[in-house]
């Protein structure tokens, strides 16, 4: 399993980004129901790992930070979910 995705919040963020092009920080915060600082720290780890790309843009003359899933992040997510499924299959088989 991917150590970085063991956190429920980070896994949730990746899942939110899976079908989207770019998602604003505020939208991610609303979706994950976390505080600014908490989400910011989790996103920083995902950005550092290259799982998520960060971009700062201006929307209606207001600065906005938005995020997009990278290929590395998508591959890590898929592999992590597979590993969790294998764990559950192993458990139900035993």
């Amino acid at each position: 399993m991917d150590d970085l995705l063991l956190s429920k919040i980070r896994l949730g963020v990746i899942a939110e980004l899976l079908d989207a092009e770019w998602i604003a920080f505020s939208d991610l915060q609303q979706a994950t129901q976390t505080t600014n600082g908490n989400l910011g720290a989790h996103l920083a780890k995902l950005v550092d790992a290259g799982y998520v790309a960060e971009e700062k843009v201006f929307v209606a003359r207001r600065p906005q930070t938005r995020y997009r899933l990278t290929k590395t992040g998508r591959a890590a997510f898929v592999e992590h979910v597979r590993a969790m499924q294998r764990l559950l299959e192993k458990e139900s088989a035993s």
Binding site: K8, L11, A15, E16, L18, D19, A31, V81, M84, L88
Partner: peptide
């Protein structure tokens, strides 16, 4: 793991 997979499933259903 089950809890995490259920969460991912909920998010993906909502995204769709």
């Amino acid at each position: 793991a089950r809890e995490h997979i259920e969460m991912v499933d909920r998010i993906l259903t909502r995204s769709e």
